[in-house]
């Protein structure tokens, strides 16, 4: 899922300065699962904003709303009827959701309440880790299911650097060395011979470097 983290409160306060009626809009997708932008978080942020603005003598009226997904026109349309009542949307979706909202509603200010941080999963409740960098050319076959692009701090494709120590990365002793994990897995799978295959210079066109990407299912096009 896409992981997000709430922006610092002061930054959010600055964004909504001058707006007296806003909608705090949650998303029922990834950010609900990672506990940053769903129904509950909308209520928490709204409550905080009302209190802070009240305290400053500049009360703000807030419509609290959460839709199924902010990255899907079908659901985005659902808030249209409420728009005349507000003068800004504070979106608690990931960056994709904020973009979709902004593209859909011209003339409406749309602000991000989250920083979209990475694609990953939960180790346990409330603890999320990065696992994919959406490079667009999956190499996990060669690396026993552990991604060196997302998990090696230098995205090295041909093995660990000289800073790998006791299974940890040179940048932080809390960070696993991705190549140690890969080697351990290759060994356990009896695939160590794969390590010595030279991983050729990468084609980064499938990555963001090739410009904004899209994916089209032809059988759904009319």
């Amino acid at each position: 899922m896409v992981i997000g983290e709430r922006k610092p409160f002061d930054e959010i306060m600055k964004m909504i300065e001058g707006h007296n009626k806003i909608m705090v809009l949650g998303c029922g997708g990834c950010v609900t699962v990672c506990l940053t932008g769903g129904h509950d978080e909308v209520r928490v942020l709204s409550s905080q904003l009302r209190m802070a603005r009240d305290k400053d003598g500049k009360p703000v009226e807030i419509i609290e709303k959460t839709i199924e997904r902010q990255c899907d026109p079908e659901y985005i349309e659902g808030v249209q009827a409420l728009l005349p009542e507000v003068d800004a949307i504070l979106s608690m979706a990931c960056g994709a959701g904020v973009n979709f909202m902004a593209e859909t509603y011209s003339g409406m200010a749309v602000y991000p309440a989250l920083n979209t941080t990475f694609v990953g999963g939960s180790k346990k409740e409330g603890y999320y880790v990065e696992r994919c960098q959406t490079c667009g050319d999956c190499k996990l076959y060669f690396t026993a299911g552990i991604c060196p692009i997302a998990r090696c701090s230098k995205s090295l494709l041909n093995g660990p650097c000289g800073g790998s120590t006791k299974g940890k990365c040179e940048i932080d002793s809390e960070v696993d060395c991705a190549w140690q994990l890969i080697i351990d897995r290759l060994k356990s799978l009896n695939q160590m011979d794969r390590y010595e295959d030279f991983m050729a210079v990468n084609d980064w066109r499938s990555n963001r470097d090739g410009g904004p990407r899209k994916m089209i299912r032809e059988d759904f096009q009319r």
């Binding site: 509950d40 409550s47 009302r50």
Partner: peptide, 11 residues
Amino acid sequence: VTPVFLLRAFE
């Protein structure tokens, strides 16, 4: 208890 409960009381 969730943060929502506690915040509402303050609010």
